[in-house]
Simulated scan of single mutants.
Amino acid sequence: MNLQLRHVTEDNFFDIINLKSELKQEKEYKLFESMVGSNAFFIAFASVKGWINRAIYDGDTLIGFATHGFDKEHNRYEMVSMMLGHKFQGKGYGKPALRAILDDMIHEYDCKEIYLSVIPENESAIRVYTALGFEPTGEIVKAFVDEHIYCLKVS
């Protein structure tokens, strides 16, 4: 495994927006997939929020995508989105990819806490998040669907 985070560029833009978290999404172009917003949605949203997008690669293979930034409304740093393409799920990428994104955030912002939201039905994501130290805050955010908030205290 040779994970790298890269910027979204003209060269990888279409590959990123075509990367889907579920096979059934391959032929559809929706703003929201069942467990995550589309990559196109987050690229656009990041452009107006001042957030950072990262393409996740294993060597030269695009495997995922993430967005992070400072949420001014809640005065906190958030991993706004992280997804792995459906072909790369269940292959041991979840924790290393999440660690890479968290390291990127810590380096970029020197933050002491990192927040994220997750759909309660996304049990596999919750297992990865809690395994790396995220804890539920009890807060629920009203997004496209209700999402539970988790926090990681950075030491």
Results as ranks from 00 to 15, higher is better:
120 P>I: 08
83 M>P: 00
123 E>V: 09
119 I>C: 01
22 E>T: 09
31 L>D: 12
132 L>Y: 13
85 G>T: 15
144 F>P: 02
49 K>R: 15
124 S>V: 06
28 E>K: 11
91 K>H: 04
123 E>A: 07
134 F>N: 00
104 D>G: 05
134 F>V: 02
34 S>Q: 15
10 E>L: 13
11 D>T: 06
150 Y>Q: 10
13 F>S: 06
14 F>I: 05
133 G>Q: 03
5 L>A: 04
79 M>E: 06
140 I>K: 07
142 K>M: 03
100 A>H: 11
155 S>Y: 05
122 N>R: 07
86 H>C: 09
155 S>M: 01
100 A>S: 15
41 F>V: 07
9 T>F: 07
56 I>M: 03
21 S>Q: 14
107 H>N: 14
101 I>R: 02
118 V>Y: 00
110 D>W: 03
122 N>E: 04
153 K>Q: 14
71 D>W: 13
69 G>H: 09
40 A>N: 09
48 V>G: 01
140 I>H: 02
126 I>N: 04
119 I>G: 00
64 G>S: 08
85 G>W: 15
123 E>Y: 08
23 L>P: 00
105 M>W: 06
139 E>C: 00
144 F>H: 12
153 K>T: 11
89 Q>T: 04
59 G>Y: 10
59 G>K: 09
155 S>D: 14
2 N>K: 07
106 I>W: 10
27 K>M: 05
60 D>S: 12
143 A>E: 14
117 S>Y: 08
4 Q>N: 14
4 Q>K: 14
55 A>D: 05
148 H>Y: 13
119 I>P: 00
69 G>M: 11
72 K>D: 00
129 Y>L: 08
59 G>R: 06
4 Q>P: 01
125 A>T: 00
93 Y>T: 01
89 Q>D: 11
63 I>Q: 08
122 N>H: 10
49 K>Q: 15
75 N>D: 14
5 L>S: 03
142 K>E: 10
104 D>S: 14
43 I>E: 06
60 D>K: 13
84 L>K: 01
105 M>G: 08
87 K>L: 14
113 E>R: 11
15 D>V: 05
131 A>S: 15
20 K>Y: 04
55 A>I: 08
73 E>G: 02
78 E>S: 06
3 L>H: 11
109 Y>K: 09
149 I>M: 14
32 F>K: 07
51 W>Y: 12
142 K>I: 02
6 R>T: 01
62 L>S: 12
146 D>R: 14
59 G>F: 04
120 P>W: 09
106 I>K: 15
99 R>V: 11
86 H>E: 10
70 F>Q: 01
6 R>C: 03
54 R>W: 07
54 R>Y: 04
49 K>S: 12
118 V>N: 01
97 A>F: 08
40 A>F: 15
146 D>Q: 12
76 R>G: 12
110 D>I: 07
79 M>G: 03
114 I>E: 01
9 T>Q: 08
67 T>S: 11
152 L>H: 05
124 S>P: 01
6 R>Y: 04
3 L>W: 02
40 A>G: 10
15 D>C: 03
54 R>H: 03
90 G>A: 10
140 I>T: 12
112 K>M: 08
2 N>A: 03
56 I>V: 13
9 T>A: 06
77 Y>G: 00
6 R>M: 09
101 I>C: 07
101 I>D: 01
